[in-house]
Design a protein around this nucleic acid. Structure first.
Lengths: 160, 160
DNA sequence: TTCCTTATTGATAATCATTTTCAATAATAT
DNA sequence: ATATTATTGAAAATGATTATCAATAAGGAA
């Protein structure tokens, strides 16, 4: 409320990543990170803009886009797409089970389900694949998505 | 060359799917399908437009978009996204190994690699997951993607 | 075949998410 | 405190995709 994130809040938390890259730690950036940190779900740029706007009304949508681009480049945020024309963003949270991006997407209504079944097994295979691909193609892999597309129960029923 | 696709070419091939849905089999649709069928790679709408244009110069970009949307809805074409702001389209070719959508995407330069390593193992696990998810969530799953994001060899080198 | 109905087409304009531009502002180093 | 320069936000520009609408053509009926 009293605007001193720089002392012990999110501002401090990513201090190294920012200053190491020559980037400044600004209020808008701190609040965007705070919003991402407090949200579990895949947010669109506008979702983020609206949430930040409640805390910091002078924020501009442009700044949100720019900051997200920066954070993606820094590897702090993961950007992905469900095919509905708007990108989604999510804070990277290490390799634990809360950071996987495995979804079930309805191509008709756009509904998205984060599933957790087989996550352990999947992550094991994916990790193995990842290492092999990094070696073979010289990539530095930072993230992955596994998405299933189809019709959700409701849309399937509507279409008979 | 002599434009008689309706006799034994692609026009005939998807006759059932079209007429069954009440859709008409038109020249533009046949050529779009022909182009998709002859292309292995994930094409953007504009890629497809340009290829169709060489065969059928009066084609309009609008028709390409509309037809692709129709084909996606019919389940004949798979639409997906690499995060570069334009959708890609690919003809569905059954469940064989030529129809997987497993990619390695460079988030810096946009390079895309279709990899084939571990495909068998992956498909096995994915198929198992798919069936479980269909049962649990009532989805009718039609497709999936598995994508790894990161920096390609070249971009990694440039950034030190 | 010829005509009729209506889905489809293609040019154009409209949308919508994302980027670019640029003068004003604010975060750091000195 | 001050100078330097990254960052911001408003507004305009971009680029992919979608909606509009009169003209055309596919497929069924006569």
């Amino acid at each position: 409320m009293s605007g001193r994130w720089g002392e012990r809040g999110p501002g401090k938390r990513w201090h190294r990543e920012f200053r190491g890259g020559g980037y400044r730690i600004t209020i808008p950036r701190q609040i965007i990170l705070q919003v991402l940190d407090e949200s579990k779900k895949h947010l669109s740029a506008e979702d983020i803009f609206l949430k930040v706007h409640q805390i910091y009304p002078t924020i501009g949508l442009t700044t949100v886009y720019r900051t997200l681009e920066l954070l993606v480049g820094m590897g702090l945020v993961f950007k992905f797409d469900f095919g509905d024309g708007r990108a989604r963003y999510e804070l990277c949270r290490g390799d634990d089970s809360s950071s996987h991006h495995h979804h079930l997407v309805c191509t008709n209504c756009g509904r998205i389900i984060d599933y957790a079944e087989f996550i352990e097994e999947e992550l094991e295979l994916i990790n193995k694949t990842k290492q092999e691909l990094e070696k073979k193609y010289g990539f530095e892999i930072r993230n992955h998505t596994l998405q299933f597309y189809g019709l959700c129960k409701r849309c399937k029923a509507i279409k008979e």
